[in-house]
């Protein structure tokens, strides 16, 4: 559904919601996850982006998530539960060299609908700031759709400017949920 925008602004195909997660062990996971705001125009995206902390400046344990309005940034959401994620894992030193660039490119891919006809399969993206290594992931809604998932992966890898020697993997949420992190198998790679 095309969201109507105020006169003079450039409407996005979708309204997007930015979420922030801050790890407070005294609270439940859900209580630590907060909706920051929603936007539906190019102008409002930049107004938001320029007023929030860069991902590289967040403390460990924090996440940003950008999801289409109506989809919550968790496996359990109906639009996510049959899906998975293209996962970018970064070395510690990349926080200061590439993390913010990769995250901004990810956001631009999402709001600009960069995946062509398969953009409708995109649910959102998540950046995890962690001491052991940061992660960025693009979440899609259907892990069994090989054509859609691999198209999104190829375009995403190209947009990040990753070398052809770098391999990125797609993991189904159903597999991630039942295995500990590094043991999750890749369903697809590009």
């Amino acid at each position: 559904v095309l969201v109507a925008a105020p006169l003079g602004k450039h409407p996005l195909q979708h309204r997007w919601a930015l979420w922030f997660f801050k790890n407070d062990k005294s609270k439940t996971w859900q209580a630590n996850l907060r909706l920051v705001t929603k936007f539906s125009t190019v102008e409002d995206f930049w107004a938001l982006y320029s007023h929030i902390q860069l991902a590289s400046k967040l403390t460990s344990g924090c996440d940003y998530s950008l999801f289409k309005d109506g989809i919550e940034p968790m496996w359990e959401d109906n639009r996510n539960k049959c899906g998975g994620r293209w996962l970018i894992t970064l070395a510690k030193q990349q926080r200061h060299t590439e993390l913010d660039h990769f995250w901004l490119e990810t956001l631009l891919c999402l709001i600009g609908e960069s995946f062509g006809e398969y953009s409708s399969e995109v649910c959102g993206a998540v950046i995890n700031i962690r001491a052991k290594g940061d992660k960025i992931a693009v979440w899609t809604c259907e892990a069994e759709d090989r054509d859609g998932v691999t198209h999104i992966g190829r375009v995403y890898k190209e947009r990040l400017g990753l070398s052809s020697k770098v391999v990125i993997g797609y993991q189904a949420h159903a597999d991630t949920a039942t295995k500990s992190g590094s043991l999750t198998k890749n369903k697809f790679v590009v």
């Binding site: 095309l2 450039h10 409407p11 996005l12 195909q13 190019v42 102008e43 995206f45 930049w46 107004a47 982006y49 320029s50 490119e105 631009l108 891919c109 709001i111 600009g112 609908e113 960069s114 953009s119 947009r159």
Partner: peptide, 20 residues
Amino acid sequence: EKKRYDREFLLGFQFIFASM
């Protein structure tokens, strides 16, 4: 009509709003 924007178009708006 689908609203698609390439990265250069989107980036063109960045510094207008960064200064507001």
